[in-house]
Simulated scan of single mutants.
Amino acid sequence: MPCADRLSRAAAILALCAAAFVAVPAQAQGTYEAALSSARLGDTRQLVGLLNRGLDADTVDLQGNTLLILAAREGMLSTVQAILQYRPRVSQRNLAGDSALMLATLGGHEAVADALLEAGAELNHEGWNPLLYAAFEGRLGLLQKFLQRGADIDALAPNRSTALMLAARNGHIEVVRTLLAAGADTALVNDRGIDAATWARQVGNTVIADLIDAEQARRAGTVRLEIR
């Protein structure tokens, strides 16, 4: 899983979490736990009640997960929609560097991802991002939406992998076709000096490797080939 090298915000969020637990009354602690549980389990009614009584919509757990992140990760659409009414930080990221949109994408929760996109969730930022997760998991529909909304097709993960590399390595041929058609750079290499075609071939995805090689040759003008 693409989950390494994403702890740049750890110190700040840990400090925030620690501060939240200083001299917290038992009743407030119970409210806090109830809110986190409601977000995870999709108990929209209880969570809305807490929010209406003044609960911060950007409340976080010890891993830096906001209520929105927790609900999105579990695919709780109605809960996500309810939280969005309280104007949370839609693109807030947890200690691991994951946002609500990234985790919705990872889990294949397309309706949740749509709601987050409509709320202005960020697509382009440093580190892992929604497009990279969509490519890694083969979420073709979401990947197409992200590209349509201006996602950086050649954005680099911390290990310098691109969406094309991740899709090629994991055998997602339709994602590879989509990325190639959209102009993904076939010549980029990751931190091990491996390009998308080479990585695909190393793991036995020879059809994908050949597809990428053919597109690279076509762009160079050595062959005329239409990718279908």
Rank of each mutant, 00 (worst) to 15 (best):
Q81A: 08
Q81N: 14
Q81M: 09
A82H: 02
I83D: 06
I83N: 05
L84Y: 08
L84Q: 07
L84G: 10
Q85L: 12
Q85T: 15
Q85M: 13
Q85A: 12
Y86R: 15
R87S: 15
P88I: 03
P88V: 01
P88W: 03
R89K: 14
V90Q: 09
V90R: 06
S91Q: 02
Q92Y: 15
Q92S: 15
Q92T: 13
R93M: 05
N94H: 04
L95F: 07
L95M: 10
L95R: 13
L95T: 10
L95Y: 05
A96E: 15
A96G: 15
A96F: 12
A96P: 06
A96W: 11
G97R: 07
G97Q: 08
D98A: 12
D98M: 14
D98N: 14
D98W: 13
A100I: 01
L101V: 04
L101F: 00
M102H: 08
M102G: 08
M102V: 06
M102S: 13
L103Y: 07
L103F: 06
L103M: 15
A104D: 10
A104F: 00
A104V: 03
T105R: 06
G107D: 07
G107V: 02
G108H: 01
E110N: 07
E110Q: 09
A111D: 15
A111C: 06
V112I: 04
A113H: 05
D114A: 13
A115P: 07
A115F: 05
L116P: 01
L116H: 09
L116R: 08
L117S: 04
E118L: 11
A119Y: 04
A119R: 06
A121V: 01
A121L: 01
E122C: 13
E122P: 03
L123H: 07
L123V: 08
L123I: 11
N124Y: 08
N124I: 05
H125L: 10
H125T: 09
H125S: 11
H125D: 10
E126T: 13
E126Y: 05
G127M: 03
W128A: 10
N129L: 02
N129W: 02
N129E: 08
N129Y: 07
N129P: 06
L131K: 10
A134H: 00
A134T: 01
A135V: 00
A135W: 02
F136G: 01
F136E: 14
E137S: 09
G138N: 07
G138M: 01
G138K: 02
R139N: 13
R139A: 01
L140T: 12
L140F: 06
G141F: 03
G141Y: 04
L142E: 14
L142F: 10
Q144W: 00
Q144I: 05
Q144K: 12
K145F: 00
K145Q: 12
F146C: 05
F146V: 03
F146E: 14
L147W: 07
L147R: 11
Q148C: 04
Q148H: 10
Q148W: 01
Q148I: 03
R149Q: 15
R149D: 01
G150A: 11
G150E: 10
A151D: 02
D152N: 14
I153Q: 14
I153Y: 09
D154A: 10
D154Y: 05
D154C: 09
A155V: 06
L156V: 12
P158E: 07
P158K: 11
N159P: 02
N159Y: 06
S161K: 14
T162A: 04
A163M: 00
